[in-house]
Simulated assay, not measured.
Amino acid sequence: MALVLAVDVSRSMSYEELRIQRQGYVAAISSPEVLRAIGQGAYGKIAVTFFEWAGNYHAREIIGWTLIGSAADAESVASKLLEGASQGARRTSISGAIDRASSLFETLPFLADRHVIDISGDGPNNQGGPVSEARDKALAKGVAINGLPLMTRGGFGSRFNIDDLDEYYRRCVTGGPGSFVIPVNDWAQFPEAVRRKLVLEIGNVRMQPKIWRAQLLFSKPYDCLIGEKIWQQRQWQFDN
């Protein structure tokens, strides 16, 4: 599997939350459960890259494509994540993050059976192209997108968040073979949620032979432009 970890660093999160987020990935990547899942795979290794995103103008690569096939590999990746700190930036462009993540597979220096984007964030898309369009373009390439919606409150821009972010991710962001959403309701849950998510992804759990398109299985439509609409209504608060 080739896995892109796309991590939200928009200013709706506080400095402390950004720190918890980095450390959560550090703990998960080097955990015995994740290493066991990697070892039990067909090839005993996965390819990983990690970048942080905010608006569609902000995508900062932290780790380029790297193979993880041993505890030493995982510790090396974890140590790189501990170097420096996350740099927050304005706006939330999930669509930009998906486009960026999808393009990274074009530079993948390894052969992989599966291409997976793992995207986390604490608010809906409010900048760049429509998120469902970016999602569908990635799915058309055979990419699966999993979500880690952060159902938390804090940071300067939290007024632009929505209460049903997990449903938003389920309806507007994620899709593809075996895709899933794991909500985080409290920052104390974050390390365990990341670990569980990686185990599910690496272990190819719940793999399905179909690609589910946006809203195909739902009786009531969901407004995937809710983030853009909230921004238009409240941006004066942010600007001031």
Rank of each mutant, 00 (worst) to 15 (best):
Val7Arg: 01
Lys229Asn: 12
Cys172Arg: 02
Lys141Met: 08
Tyr169Pro: 00
Asp186Phe: 06
Gly88Val: 05
Lys137Met: 11
Asp118Ile: 10
Leu3Ile: 14
Trp236Ile: 08
Asn161His: 07
Cys224Asn: 02
Ile211Pro: 00
Ser219Pro: 01
Tyr169Ser: 03
Ala138Asn: 03
Leu148Glu: 00
Val4Asp: 00
Tyr43His: 10
Phe218Tyr: 08
Val9Phe: 06
Phe50Ile: 09
Gly128Asn: 14
Phe110Thr: 06
Ala78Phe: 02
Ala27Ile: 10
Lys141Phe: 04
Thr152Arg: 05
Glu83Gln: 15
Gln40Ala: 15
Ser14Cys: 12
Ile46Pro: 02
Gly155Ala: 08
Ile68Phe: 12
Ile211Cys: 05
Tyr57Glu: 15
Leu216Asp: 11
Gln208Ala: 12
Lys210Gln: 13
Asp99Trp: 06
Val184His: 01
Ile63Tyr: 03
Gln237Gly: 05
Phe238Gly: 04
Asp73Ile: 10
Glu61His: 03
Gly227Val: 04
Arg100Thr: 12
Ala188Met: 09
Ile46Gly: 01
Tyr168Ile: 04
Tyr169Ile: 02
Ile46Thr: 11
Gln208Thr: 15
Val143Leu: 02
Asp8Met: 08
Glu106Pro: 01
Ser132Ala: 15
Ala144Trp: 03
Trp212Val: 09
Arg135Ile: 08
Ile46Ser: 01
Ser103Lys: 12
Asp164Pro: 04
Leu198Arg: 03
His115Tyr: 10
Leu82Arg: 12
Phe160Met: 10
Tyr25Pro: 09
Phe218Ser: 00
Leu150Glu: 02
Ser79Gln: 12
Gly154Cys: 09
Val26Pro: 06
Val181Gln: 05
Arg91Glu: 09
Lys229Cys: 08
Phe110Cys: 02
Gly121Glu: 06
Glu61Gly: 10
Asp186Val: 06
Phe218Leu: 00
Val48Cys: 04
Glu61Val: 11
